[in-house]
Write a protein that binds this DNA or RNA. Structure first.
Length: 573
DNA sequence: ATAGGGTTAG
């Protein structure tokens, strides 16, 4: 048995990404610990009980106050129910204050209460407080259970603190009273997926299949979704079939992940087929068989939102609007996300007036626009050149209590740069620094591009060269922007040098990079060097885009291309 | 009554 685990660990270790660090190695340690334990597991069926109707935090506080006034007070289970409801509303800080009120009123917490509390601190990114709750268990003479550990492990994963998660798991199994269950495994699978290590996730899935703790639908859904997000939709569909062969029926979440994946990839026939499948209708002829196995699944708001987003991405905004109206007609199906998705769709297609209409409409329906809604609208105003309106909305959102995040700043910064407002852009950047926002590579790329647009190539180059001293690595977009700036400045050999350099640093140029440098060379009348790079691009399976093609056609019409290169150019078409 | 899975913005 141990030999098998050692082999598994070796496989995991060699399949990891090059950049992964010790933390990931610890993750394998976690898996190893899990496999050392082979034990009986019993799944206890939890009875489902109806809870009081609480739809807002205010409701919760009211019910809670009444409960505190009752003599004798209700059991702690009733209080836990309220805390659970508030957790569903994601008002984690409210839960902490409710918990403190319980303490003042002499209501003793039980294991479940403390688990809910730990989960709150996890969601608030306060792992220190999460761990300190373990002290409360000790003081109250309570034993942490498997949910306690699972919650804590789950809290550590996004913070990249896998080593601590491993320590916890060790404690959990040493303690003897609680053993890892399918949720523990599911949490670790999610941890691998979050690190982008789908291979390790799939290998852990395989180990679960062989062991006593069989994977359930949630584990499969986690991996299917992760594969879809990495645009490995075919792999996701294979896993989907494999899961059904094992007798695990997909649910609406499985279909939604697939829908989102195929929608983003532009495999539209598959997306509509999935929807038809869910509604129990027969769609396209090909491949329907495997999709038809499960038909009695109702599409929900996630399904329709993904469908809408897919239509927006391929410019079919009329169809997106139709889906939106369908959601409205279904009554309780629309929400802020659904509105934001369509608003973003209109903004991307420069239809800011339609987007603003939706924005007004959503507030009439009692929905509160969030950071994403505002960010999309700021982008929409920038895209149509209404930069003052964009900045006005940027201030308004703050007045409404919706704080801009790094992404919001990047949208406005990009808008200012593209609309040739470099000094206002620099001022905004200063604001970000003052607010101590975590300025990432995307922000610097925008700024470098802005400097290039303004003709300040020297400053752009300095900023680019200073990235590593800020602990940041240029990505493929940063390199492409810098290459474009150098070409515009006529420094084509430096641009070509950078193309080689990026490859050497493990950042492969993509189609956009090649098109950028090829256009730059042609514009600088370096046709033969452009042709060399066209050949290189085609060899890499990348192809010329519309504007590169236009330049090539112009060259052909002026007889500036060696006819010997024609077959090659045809190939890149 | 508590723990792991799905939608929107650079």
């Amino acid at each position: 048995m141990k030999a098998r685990f050692a082999y598994f660990l070796t496989q995991c270790y060699y399949s990891r990404d090059a950049e992964d660090d010790d933390a990931e190695y610890s993750c394998f340690f976690v898996v190893f610990l899990l496999h050392q334990q082979e034990m009986e597991r019993t799944q206890l069926e939890q009875p489902v009980r109806n809870s009081p109707k609480i739809t807002t935090v205010e409701d919760a506080f009211n019910v809670f106050d009444r409960m505190l006034q009752m003599r004798p007070p209700p059991s702690v289970v009733r209080f836990n129910q309220i805390l659970g409801q508030v957790a569903k509303l994601k008002h984690y800080s409210s839960i902490i204050s409710l918990y403190n009120q319980m303490g003042v009123s002499g209501i003793g917490p039980n294991v479940c209460t403390l688990n809910i509390l730990i989960n709150c601190y996890c969601h608030l990114n306060q792992m220190g407080f999460s761990l300190s709750v373990l002290g409360n268990f000790f003081k109250l003479g309570l034993e942490p259970d498997v949910s306690t550990f699972n919650t804590l492990i789950n809290g550590f994963l996004p913070e990249n603190r896998v080593a601590e998660a491993a320590t916890l798991l060790h404690k959990m199994m040493r303690g003897g009273n609680c053993q890892p269950n399918v949720v523990t495994y599911g949490t670790l699978v999610k941890g691998f997926c979050m690190k982008g290590n789908n291979i390790a996730a799939i290998q852990l899935l395989g180990k679960m299949e062989e062991g006593a703790c069989k994977p359930d639908l949630v584990v499969y859904n986690t991996i299917i979704d992760s594969l879809c997000k990495d645009t490995l939709v075919d792999d996701a569909l294979n896993l989907f079939s494999e899961m059904m062969c094992k007798g695990i029926a997909p649910n609406v979440i499985t279909y939604n992940s697939l829908m989102n994946g195929v929608g983003k990839l532009g495999k539209w026939k598959e997306a509509t087929r999935l929807l038809n499948d869910m509604e129990g209708m027969v769609g396209e002829a090909e491949g329907v068989v495997e999709m038809m196995i499960e038909r009695d699944i109702e599409p929900d708001r996630f399904t329709y939102t993904s469908l809408m987003d897919g239509y927006c991405l391929r410019g079919e905004i009329g169809k997106a609007q139709k889906v939106f109206e369908l959601m409205l007609s279904k009554g309780s199906m629309f929400d802020v996300v659904c509105y934001s998705t369509l608003i973003s769709g209109y903004c991307k297609h420069k239809k800011i007036d339609e987007a603003m209409m939706l924005f007004l409409d959503m507030s009439h329906k009692g929905l509160v626009a969030d950071t994403i809604t505002y960010s999309s609208l700021v982008d929409g105003f920038c895209k149509v050149g209404r930069i003052n309106d964009a900045q006005k909305l940027f201030s308004e959102m703050q007045a409404c209590g919706q704080l801009p995040n790094v992404q919001t700043y990047s949208i406005l910064l990009d808008g200012l740069c593209k609309n040739r407002q470099l000094s206002r852009a620099m001022q905004l950047f200063g604001e970000m620094e003052a607010k101590k926002l975590d300025i990432d590579i995307v922000i610097y790329s925008i700024l470098i591009e802005g400097l290039c647009i303004a003709g300040k190539l020297e400053s752009a180059r300095n900023l680019f060269c200073g990235l590593s001293s800020k602990g940041l690595q240029p990505d493929v977009r940063t390199y492409t922007i810098m290459i474009n700036g150098l070409c515009i400045g006529g420094l084509t050999s430096e641009a070509e040098k950078l193309l080689v350099e990026m490859e050497g640093k493990g950042c492969s140029p993509n189609g956009c990079t090649y098109n950028t440098i090829i256009r730059g060379l042609i514009s600088n009348k370096e046709t033969s060097r452009a042709m060399v790079l066209i050949q290189q691009m085609v060899e890499k399976g990348l192809s010329a885009d519309a504007s590169t093609m236009e330049l090539i056609v112009q060259l052909l019409s002026k007889d500036e291309v060696d006819p010997a290169l024609l077959p090659l150019i045809k190939e890149s078409l």
